[in-house]
Computed example of a mutant assay.
Amino acid sequence: MPVEWQPVRQSRTHELVLRSIEERVVAGELRVGDRLPPERELAPVLGVSRSALREALRVLETIGVLVAQPGRGPDAGARIVRNPDDALGRLLRLHFALGSYSLQDVLEARVVLERSSFEAAACHASPEVLDEAEALVVGMAEPGIEVSAFNDLDTRFHVLIAHSSGNALTSTLTSAVRESVRPLILRALEAAEDWPATARALDTEHGILLTLVREGRGGEAADLVERHIRALHGTLVEGPVEQS
C-alpha cells in the first residue's frame, strides 16, 4: 500500500521555547525561585531571537509561573514562581465571557467546590483565619454598604474559606470559579428590588456559615452553602452567557 503522508505541524518559535522551559520544570531542573539566564545569553543557547524569547516569557508571566523584573542588579531578570490563583481566574473569566461554559456549568462546579471547602474548613481553618472571615461578615453588615463593596467582601469571604480548607488546588479552583462570576453576581445584586433587605439576608447566611465552620459542623455548612449559592445563581440568566 502507498504510504499515507500527513502534514507536519509547524510550531511557532516561542512555542518551542515554552516547550523547552516546561520540560525543564517537569524534570525538576527548574524550581520555584530559580532565575533564568539573561535574554542575551538564553536566546542564542536556544537558537531563537530575543523577540521570540520575550514572547515566550510573557506567556509564562500570564499563566503565573514566571515573573520578570526589568533593569539591572540582583533582582533583575526572569524568575520561576508559582502564582496560579490570579492566572487561572483570569483564564476562566475570559472563557466564561466567551461562552465556553454555561452559567449552569459554573454553578455546578461552584457547588461541588464550595461544599468541599466549607466542610474541610470546619476541620482545618485556624482561629486567626476565622477571625478574618468574621471581620468580612461584619463589613458586609455595615449600614448603607454599596453593592460593589458588598460583592468584594462576599468574594473575599468565600475565597478565604477555600484557602483555609487545607487543599491548595481546591482553593485555587474555588477562587477562579467565584471570580469568574463576580460581574454577574454584581449585576444581580444591583438589580435587587430591596437592596438593604437582600444584603441583610445574604450576610445573615454568611454569619451562620461562619458559625457552623467554627463549631466544626462541616456537613451542615456544606448543605447551607449549596442552598446559598443556588439561591443567588437562580436569579441569574441560565444557559450560555454573553457579556459585554
Rank of each mutant, 00 (worst) to 15 (best):
residue 210 L to D: 05
residue 217 R to L: 06
residue 184 L to I: 08
residue 222 A to Y: 04
residue 218 G to K: 04
residue 202 L to R: 13
residue 180 S to Q: 05
residue 182 R to C: 07
residue 165 S to F: 04
residue 184 L to H: 13
residue 205 E to Q: 14
residue 179 E to K: 12
residue 203 D to R: 15
residue 224 L to F: 00
residue 195 W to S: 08
residue 151 N to S: 14
residue 158 H to Y: 01
residue 192 A to N: 07
residue 223 D to P: 03
residue 224 L to W: 03
residue 169 L to I: 14
residue 200 R to S: 11
residue 158 H to D: 02
residue 159 V to F: 07
residue 153 L to K: 11
residue 168 A to F: 03
residue 196 P to D: 11
residue 208 I to N: 12
residue 226 E to S: 03
residue 221 A to C: 05
residue 153 L to R: 11
residue 189 L to T: 08
residue 179 E to Q: 13
residue 210 L to K: 06
residue 169 L to A: 08
residue 222 A to I: 03
residue 153 L to M: 13
residue 188 A to P: 09
residue 173 L to K: 10
residue 151 N to C: 15
residue 197 A to K: 15
residue 158 H to A: 04
residue 171 S to N: 00
residue 208 I to G: 10
residue 227 R to P: 02
residue 167 N to Y: 01
residue 202 L to V: 15
residue 180 S to G: 08
residue 217 R to S: 05
residue 219 G to V: 12
residue 178 R to P: 02
residue 192 A to Y: 03
residue 171 S to Q: 00
residue 162 A to W: 01
residue 226 E to D: 05
residue 171 S to F: 04
residue 194 D to S: 12
residue 165 S to D: 00
residue 166 G to T: 00
residue 167 N to L: 05
residue 168 A to P: 12
residue 167 N to M: 06
residue 189 L to W: 10
residue 181 V to Q: 10
residue 185 I to S: 11
residue 226 E to L: 00
residue 225 V to H: 00
residue 168 A to G: 08
residue 226 E to R: 03
residue 201 A to W: 12
residue 170 T to W: 04
residue 183 P to F: 09
residue 176 A to H: 08
residue 184 L to V: 08
residue 188 A to R: 14
residue 206 H to M: 09
residue 152 D to W: 13
residue 224 L to H: 02
residue 162 A to K: 03
residue 161 I to G: 03
residue 192 A to L: 09
residue 213 V to T: 07
residue 163 H to C: 12
residue 168 A to C: 09
residue 202 L to T: 14
residue 214 R to P: 13
residue 207 G to V: 07
residue 204 T to S: 14
residue 204 T to K: 12
residue 159 V to A: 11
residue 160 L to D: 02
residue 162 A to T: 03
residue 209 L to S: 05
residue 221 A to N: 04
residue 221 A to W: 00
residue 220 E to K: 05
residue 204 T to V: 14
residue 164 S to H: 00
residue 179 E to I: 08
residue 218 G to I: 06
residue 192 A to R: 12
residue 177 V to I: 04
residue 204 T to A: 15
residue 204 T to P: 00
residue 222 A to N: 03
